[in-house]
Structures are given as C-alpha cells and as structure tokens.
Design a protein around this nucleic acid. Sequence first.
DNA 1: CTAGGGTTAG
Length: 597
Amino acid sequence: MQVLAPIRSPRWISTRRIFEQKISDLHKCTDPSQLKQVLAVIYKSNLHADIFIATKLISAFSLCRQMRSAVTIHNQIRQPDAQAYNVLIRAHVRNSQPSQAFAAFSQMQSYGVRPNVFTYPFLLKAFSGLEIVAATHAHVEKFGFVEDILVLNSLIEAYSKCGLMGVCAAKKLFSLMVQRDHVSYNCMISGLAKAGQLTEARELFDEMPERDTVSWNAILDGYVKSGEVTVAFQLFQSMPLRDSVSWSTMVLGYRKAGNMEMARNLFDEMPVKNMVAWTIIISGYAEKGLLKEAMRLYNEMEEAGLKPDEGTIISILGACADSGMVGLGRRVHDSVKRNRFSFSIRVSNALVNMYVKCGCLDEALSIFHGMKERNSVSWSTIIHGLGLHGYGEKAVQLFSRMTREGFAPNKVTFLGILSACSHAGLVDEGIRYFYRMQRDYGVIPEIEHYGCMVDLLGRGGRLMEAFGLAHNMPFEPNDKICGALLAACRKHYAVTRAEDELKQLVQLDLKNTGNLSMLSDIYAATGDWTSVAGARLCMKNMSSEKPSGASSIELGDEYYEFTMMDRSHPKSDMIYQMIDQLGEHLRKIGYVHTASC
DNA sequence: CTAGGGTTAG
C-alpha cells in the first residue's frame, strides 16, 4: 500500500474526502511503520478526532498488533459512538485481550453510549465462562435486543463453549427462538457436538431445512472430537460439497486415531492444501516423533510459498515441546525470526515453553527476557520452567517480579510456583504460597494444587502433614495424590508409620502402573513378599493394555525413542553392553542404587 | 454472527 502524501492546503472538507477514499483500504496495510506515517499525516491535518477516520485507523493498527496506538486513537475521539466502541472491543478481542475488551464495554456504559446489535457478537467472543456470558445475556435483555437473531446466535455460540451447563442454556435459548436461521442451527449443532452430545447434534442436523457445507463440517468435527473417525469418514464421503475445512477435519481425525498413513493419504489427495492442513499433518509427525518427515514437510510448505501463521507456529511448537524435538523447534524459530512481526506474545510463549521442555533453559530465558510485552501465561511458563530445571529460588524471585509488575497470578501460575518449591525443597515457602493463593489473590485451590502440596510435604519428609492434607482436603484423593504419597513413603522409608493410611488410599487406585511399582517397592522394604508378588502380577497384566513411558533423544537429524527392555534398535546388544559398563563404572566411584528391593 | 490447527498445569 502506498503511503499517503502530506496535503499542502488543508481545506477541511476536501481534505477529509481525500482521506475517506484512501482510508477505506487502510486495513490492507500490514506494515506498522507505514501506518505510523499515515497517522502522522492525519495528525498534521487535524483529522484524528473524526470518528470515521479514527475507527478505520483503530482497526488497521489492531490488525498489526499495535494496540497502544489503537487505544490512543480511540481516546482522542471527541464523542465516541457505539461503532467506535465496537471497533475497539473487536481490536482487543483480536489481540487476545479479553479483559481490556470488557473494560472498553464498561467504559462505553459509564459514558452512556448505548450498545447496538454488533456490540454483543464482538464482546461475546472474548468471554469464556458461564457467569460472564449469563451476565451479558441479562444485559441483552435489559437493552431489549432479545429478538435480534444476530445477538441470539452469538449468545448460543458463547454459551455452548461453557461446558455442559452452558450447552443446556444454549439449548433453552435455541428452543425459545421465534425465528431461526441456518447460523442458529450451525451454532447449536457445533455446540452440541463439542459437548459430546452427538445424538442430539445429529437429530438437529437431520431436521435442518437447508444444509450448507458449514453444518456438515460442524457434525464432522463432532464425530472426530469423540474419536469416531469411521463414522466421520462415511459422512465425509456422502457430503455434497467438500471444502478445505472438511478435508482438514478428516486429516485431524486420522491423526488423532494414530493413523498417520491415512491422514497422509487424505492430505496428499486434498485439492487445495491450506495452512491448517499443513499444520495438522506436520504437528502430527512431530507428535509421533517422526522428525525427518515433519522437517521435510515443513520445508516443503515454505518452498510452496506458504508463510506459517500464528496458529501453525504455536501448534508445531507445542508438538515439539511434547516430543522434545528441539531441532524442528529451532527451525520454526528461524522462520519466526525472518518476519519480525510474527513475534506475538503467544508465539513467544510457545517458544519459551518449547525450549523449557526440550531442556534448553538458557534459550527459554533469553526469549522471555527479550519479550517486549508479556502476559500471565508468559510468567507462568517461565516460573514452571525454572522449577522444572531445579531453580526454585529463581522461580520465587520471578513470581515476586510478576506481581510487582501488576500481573495477577492464576491457578496455573500457582501450580508452577508450588511445583518449583517442591522440586527445590522450599517447603515453608510453598506452604506460604498455598495460603496466600486464596487469601491474597482469590484463587481457589483445586485438586491439582493439593497434589502439589502433598508432593511438597511428602518430598520434604513431612509425611504426617502430607497424609493429613490428603485426608482433609475437600476432594476425593485421585491417582496423582496417591502417587505423591507413595513416592514420599518410598523416599523416606517411613513405611510402617504410614502403612495403614496408605493401604486405605491405595484401594482407590490400582490402575496406575507407576503407583503399583512404588507400592511393590514399599512392600519389599517391609519384607511383605506376598504383597510384592501380587502387585507385580497386577502390573504384568496391565502392561499389555497401557503403553509404557519412553525417553527420546535427537542426534543430528535422527530422532530415537527408547523404552524399558527395548530391543528394537539394530545395535541393542552394544547399547546394553555399554549400559552395563556404565553401571559398573558408577559402582566403582561409589554410587549406590537406591531401590530398596 | 456459524465450520478446521493453536501457548501455561507430574
């Protein structure tokens, strides 16, 4: 886009007309520095307070993530109307700032600007949570928009994102609607499908007066999400028209079923391969540890002239984090560096997470410290990362910095800091956080937080407190809690003291091989060999059902995965010989294996 | 306004 030339004779009316024409195309400009030049010209001509021009500018700045400019421009409008606020709300939503979107909505009300029907669809996109959607619903009723199909459709969509209760509310709203269009049906079908209520979704789909491709895709996605790939594929084949969404949904379906061959066949057959399809197939290979194929396709995608978007980058980095594929992660990082405007908060967070999980803490830290803007997720990720790598004190320091800088720690942040304290042995520090969490930050502890606390106390040798907490917490103990207690008992040889309570808890969970193996160790330490044999037998019966854990390593451009008793590698004999030699060496220099059995 | 990929949680 060409930058506007300064206007020499600013006769207001004609100048404004010139801008009006050029400004309608402003949203196509993706370069922030060009936009800043345009803004300078507009300031010079004193047109920045004009509502029409200002709203176009807000929209354009928000599209290239320049929210500070967008907000400044909005603040300079003399008498902002509903449209001016709608654009600002949409700008915040687009840039994943739901709380600011809500703040804009509140400001609008306090200034007495009446919302219009377009306000709610934007606003509702920002919300997740039954209470806030219900509150917005009440607002809609108060302002008398209950008959507007646009608003009602948005409410149905927003409600159905809020779990089972939300879907109920959506159903009620849908049934009360005087008029329904195909969007109402599609929102409802997709909501039901996402909640796993496939039969109802299918009934609605069958009774719809007209089905366009969107409805088919919604029900297709429902089957895929509930793991019914075969049904989904039958439907896919009977569709009158298939678009790229239908194809990519099926590719995802087969990837989720672990059938990468079928996923790949469909991907190859796709008439038009878009970013989402590339993302699904590449992340699929990365997830499965097929580094070479993931890498090859990633290069192929870039060679085809496609630039990975935010979703692609986040998705692939997530798969790299899970499988430890730092090589592909670095490759993605390189593409991000090449176009510097793609470094959004979310992309940076995904990079930090990837490096943390791949064991490259220094790289994670350098990205984190280089971020211009951070959100709670950034802080939670790095705090958890420091904890994972054993730097408990550093995690604690960053937690204080986070709160000093005005970020509210959420339930995930607390899981991070509690597990960091646990790993670093900072027992009292951890207990303090657990109390402050509810008292100072209003975060109500969930079972996972109790899990962290049981682990923290158990690792720290405060077994009785750990058992006390497990008994008195407002949740039923689950396998994680049992696991933490078993690990603590094994570590501190405090078997007899805790045995009775332990046996009680253990009844709850005999389906977890990890826990059973710890239990067997504990029985062995007490000399109860009959129970050891029982536990071993259970484990043996289960090992056929459940895949065992695996470790992996990347060497050059090869990726190796290995499991217990693995003999699949061609050089297995050599490898096990080497392990024996290492073990011998360790014993010589004084290492004692700790397993008491 | 409706469909597909997607960052933090042993």
